[in-house]
Amino acid sequence: MRVAVAITLTDDERKTLMKWSRGRSTPMRLVKRAQVVLLAAAGKTNLEISHEVGMARRPVGVWRKRFAEGRLAAIEKDAPRPGRPSPERDSLTRRILEATTQTKPKHATHWSTRSLAAELGVSDARVARVWRAHGLQPHRVKTFKVSNDPDFAEKVHDVVGLYLNPPEHAIVLSVDEKTQVQALDRTQRGLPIHPGRCGTMTHDYKRHGTTTLFAALNVAEGVVIDKCMKRHRHQEWIAFLKEIDARTPAGLDLHLIADNYATHKHPKVQSWLKRHPRFHMHFIPTSSSWLNLVERFFAELTNKRLRRGTFRSVPQLIKAIKQYVEDHNNHAKGLRWTATAEEILAKVRRARATLDKVTSD
């Protein structure tokens, strides 16, 4: 009479197997294998395991034995199948890859598994397997733009130099405006989050006006200087510069990193800056908002406070923004920039070369 291999698990192995057996994104075949090993370690027979897991008794014995011989690695990956790979399968994989990366459907912007399967005369499951194996996701797209600023390299060196080696007796501030922040009120109350159900909110809303948030992020400390105003003309920009002047130590120079918005370069702004020599403006290249660190703060504000917020008036919106900024400043940490100017320029050169090649093709 055959006796099943006894299974004894270490704490780490048990922890990993429990994770696999319960993981929502874990492949079902691995879930079942993990369950087999856990039940075997609990002293169950192969017949009992087969009934509990819903797997035939023979494969239960196979995976039990395979774990005993090779531990976790033996059940995580499928064993290589005997025989040579099918030439037809390799040819079909190449056809799917070429069609996905080099062609587009006639009446759509990108392929789906079903549309490409119909075009090639294969199953959509086959297309999905090839896409997963090669990391292809035609339904997703990322935005990008290579800056055409003629002074790109010079500006990158200037701004990155401030991040990596800030001057002594000075404060480096990343500044910008978040314009048209809307006070939105939902037409109905949403349902709260509940086990097994996410929170809800209506797709439509009522508008109650807008405000513009001016913000200056102290790169070394992470603290934000904020001011909400109705508009974002050069008058408001000068008012915000005065706010920065009043809320920073008088004996320190101020190096402001800003984008190329025309308001920041208005003649009256230039005149004001000449009368306040401790202010030094540094402009990022065009189409390079990723160089302005205050954009990270704006993104966090939007995701954590504004996007799901309900505001019945502009004053209520401004109050919520100020409360968020106050809490942010109470837990602020300095931001650490790591990329050098040369690394950034090399990456941009590669992107531009790829873009030129695609354009020429």
Rank of each mutant, 00 (worst) to 15 (best):
K319A: 15
A262C: 13
S86P: 13
R336V: 11
T179E: 05
H208T: 05
D356Y: 10
L164D: 05
D78R: 13
H157R: 14
H328K: 09
R24F: 00
L47A: 15
L252I: 06
R132L: 09
R114A: 14
D11L: 10
E342T: 15
P249S: 13
S50M: 11
A320E: 07
R336F: 02
P59S: 11
A353S: 14
A170R: 02
V223Q: 10
R233V: 10
P105S: 05
K106N: 01
I284C: 05
K106F: 00
T113K: 09
E48R: 12
K106E: 13
H266V: 10
I171T: 01
H234W: 12
L213I: 05
E300L: 12
D327N: 10
T210W: 00
H255T: 11
H169D: 06
H134W: 08
D124R: 09
A56W: 00
H107W: 07
S289F: 14
R114E: 07
T212R: 02
H331K: 07
G23K: 06
D90V: 12
I321F: 08
M281E: 02
S288A: 08
V122Y: 01
H234R: 04
E326V: 04
E13A: 06
E221L: 08
T248L: 12
V160P: 05
A42P: 01
N218Q: 10
H328I: 01
L120T: 06
W63C: 06
P87L: 05
L335M: 05
P285V: 03
G61L: 01
K15Y: 03
L345V: 09
I171V: 09
P85I: 12
I49N: 03
A353K: 09
K104P: 08
L39N: 05
I7C: 01
K104A: 12
H234K: 04
T93H: 11
S115C: 13
V269Y: 03
H255Q: 10
